[in-house]
């Protein structure tokens, strides 16, 4: 192939153009024109469309696996607690904001001097933050 870029990494824009040309030139294996313009849908919408699509089908058997049905169920085991700051076992909990902590040092040095909002960031790491809408 004539378009093989040199090994030395490119600094010239010529080389970039050559690399880009691999993709953008007309291809022998494809019709020369672009097919229909596609609408961009975010994943959330793709999933909700899928749910609607599944509901519209009437004769699906109850145990047919679908995108939504293969999602793992919640855990039934007792939840273990960990320190939100360090990840060590979190025996204690600050009643003011629900942050868990390992020992009194973490509480005194970190949690008590926390700037506002940081506690929510820590809680957000385990999805326990308050989301204002």
């Amino acid at each position: 192939m004539s378009t093989t870029p040199s090994n030395s990494g490119f600094s010239t824009s010529e080389e970039i153009h050559l690399l880009s040309n691999i993709t953008t030139r007309p291809h022998t294996f494809k019709r020369p024109y672009k097919t229909t313009t596609r609408r961009y849908k975010p994943t959330k919408q793709v999933i909700s469309d899928e749910v609607k699509y599944l509901q519209s089908k009437e004769n699906i058997k109850f145990d047919t696996p679908t995108y939504t049905s293969v999602g793992a169920p919640p855990s039934l085991k007792p939840r273990k607690h960990y320190c939100d700051i360090t990840g060590l076992p979190g025996k204690y909990k600050n009643p003011a904001n629900g942050l868990r902590f390992y020992n009194v040092e973490i509480y005194q040095e970190v949690i008590r001097n926390m700037p506002p909002g940081v506690d929510q960031e820590y809680l957000g790491l385990r999805g326990a933050n308050v989301i204002l809408k």
Binding site: G71, A72, P73, P74, S75, L76, K77, R79, K80, Y82, G124, L125, R126, G127, A128
Partner: peptide
């Protein structure tokens, strides 16, 4: 193994 560490409300691979 414990998805709830990251706030994911699902069972871990071993429990499943």
């Amino acid at each position: 193994f414990q998805p709830n560490i990251a706030g994911l409300d699902q069972a871990g691979i071993v429990e499943i």
